[in-house]
Write a protein that binds this DNA or RNA. Sequence first.
DNA 1: ATAGGTGTATTATATGATTAATACACAATA
DNA 2: TATTGTGTATTAATCATATAATACACCTAT
Lengths: 126, 126
Amino acid sequence: MNVNFNNRDPVYLQIVRYFKEKIAIGELEPGEEIPSRRELANQMKVNPNTAQRAYKEMEEQGLIYTEKNHPSKITTDQNILGQVRNELLVEAVDVFVTSVRSINVPVEELLDLVRVKYTANDDKEA
Amino acid sequence: MNVNFNNRDPVYLQIVRYFKEKIAIGELEPGEEIPSRRELANQMKVNPNTAQRAYKEMEEQGLIYTEKNHPSKITTDQNILGQVRNELLVEAVDVFVTSVRSINVPVEELLDLVRVKYTANDDKEA
DNA sequence: ATAGGTGTATTATATGATTAATACACAATA
DNA sequence: TATTGTGTATTAATCATATAATACACCTAT
């Protein structure tokens, strides 16, 4: 469980993001139990309250659910789970396009840049 | 001079960004005078110190230069000016690819999403 | 029953970044 | 010369975030 926190975004949101990524790629399955607040705080070297805040956020978004005295679990709602990947994607594309539109770049140049950068490290994973 | 500030990023950096965009698309030319700190602060409804900090940042990056008792001017260094567009582009692509890589998206799906989103509002500008 | 593990809630403190409030030196000009 | 407009510097205040310190209710298993 290695997360690279940046200093800009709130840690608790980065934790939420971390779980969303795991969900998006199917590494976390419906109903699967996740670490308790205190345990996660230990693993991530973070204050328990920060972990709690992250989980609270996830609970409000319907990503996890909690039964009395048990660590939270990933939701079984396929509807929500299915949307996570798309949400992350759309959001990223949105931010990107917005930030780049003000520069008036030809589409093809833009797509080339993305393709090159994105496929640059394919040898590592292949 | 309408800038839409977001709440996440420091205002002074958003101002720097604003000028970089203008430079990137050639709307600000070499040697061109830009508003004084106080004037900019007025226009953007921002504290003069925030304007000052933005200008200081730009000065350190070599984007502008300042002569005694005169408003700063855009650098005439074509080298620096030429890099601005590329810097903005590369940075945006970098952030995008990084944020999206953890989701394992096929390249073509990704490029399609970008293309669609990017060309969506072409009718507005055409 | 008691010790330890859950989640949850409240309050206080620390910290760092950002913004704000002032003040200063200088030059031009009315 | 006195006012106004430059850039610059220093210090204070603000704000969001993160952390910390506790406390509580609940359950399980020793």
